[in-house]
Amino acid sequence: MPRIDAPSFRPGELEVHEDGSGNLVGSRCSSCGAHFFPVRDACSGCLSTDLETIGFSTTGILYTYSVVRQSTPEFEVPYILGYVDFPEKVRIMGQIRADLDYLSIGMPMVLELEPFGEDDDGNPLTGYRFVPQESTDD
């Protein structure tokens, strides 16, 4: 994977590591163990405010997806959007890079860092996309 030096497009939600890897960030309730994305101030399960910020796994299962063909000016269409369920029991939306013909509900997906948009000064930012796990094995 090429190293990406650009800062995260969503600081506090996406960690970018020195080695170019990265992961999404959320909360884990120290009291009942529930996980949340994004970071929360209190647990919706037990209302504890004793939450720790953790990085989530980078593989999950595709819950559903769509090809977006009409969007706001910031986004070039078409793009694939999907929800991935992670082992921490959080469901997170992201864009998907995949051959549509091979995409199906229930398939394993991996989070990868990719260039994603620009800041107000036109500098590139790092974001994430989900890709089918099979296509990352080789």
Binding site: V68, Q70, S71, T72, M93, G94
Partner: peptide, 8 residues
Amino acid sequence: PEAAVGAT
């Protein structure tokens, strides 16, 4: 966060 990745 979902708007940021292109949710409509």
